[in-house]
Amino acid sequence: MNTALEYLRENRLPHIWCPGCGHGTIMGAVVRAIARLNFDKNKVVIVSGIGCSSRAPGYMDFDTLHTTHGRALAFATGIKHARPDLKVIVMTGDGDATAIGGNHFIHAARRNIGITTIVMNNNIYGMTSGQVSPMTPKGALGTTAPYGNIDRSFDLVQLAQASGATYVGRATTYHVPLLIDLIEHALQNDGFSVVEAMTPCPTYFGRKNKMGGAVELLTMLKDNAVNIKAASALSEEKLKGKFLIGEFVNKSEPEFTNEYAKMVEQVQRKFDTFQGGLRECEQNSD
């Protein structure tokens, strides 16, 4: 078995993330899950968008693609569709995945294309210094919500599930063994998988909201997380102010590139050779 370190570009380290940021922990969890599965590092592609989260691929020893803001899943869709044999992993942030990239997120889930998406949720835009995101809790402060955030926030697990993702999990950077397990399971799913990794941003979210430093924020993740397996036995009152972690969806459904391959097979049986250019085109408007 390979060690996790073999999947990192050691010469690119140390990383740029702030002290107390959980992004390194999440990157560590991803390479540990890959190491457990013993993936060939020549057959893995990591794709990211823009933001703190999206710097991760630069440190990882695979073919890596740092794209435009919000578009990682669309680039990744091109790669996976072109080369279904590759393991395609998207590492994205809460703003990248649910604001500017929200449309791509729901459509990748709808297609159930075989991409594993790790959403590094720190509830804030860190790279641009602390603006609120669609996953900033209502009432929280951000540099663009100086009087408190009046927007409601997404529940990413519900969003992914409703959009058709066939694997959905959530863990935190406190619950690292669980996080590695979930990513491992997600990587084994043929279809579209989402793992939300909740991570503290002491520099902006914690400081702006006077929630303390890295230790306090991590303690909060520890104290407020309830595993979905335990949740059903708890009263509504006991669950107030808590969030659920664990495995929410794990099911097998037809995956996009497999479906495409099946279609190609059928079509090719019908048409032996390329006869292009003989068809009358219809003209549509709008």
Binding site: V47, D63, L65, T67, T68, R71, A74, F75, A76, T77, G78, I79, H81, A82, R83, L86, N103, H104, H107
Partner: peptide, 13 residues
Amino acid sequence: IASMAAIIGASLA
């Protein structure tokens, strides 16, 4: 936007 992104990904592949 996604179309342009997808063809770039495919070209890289």
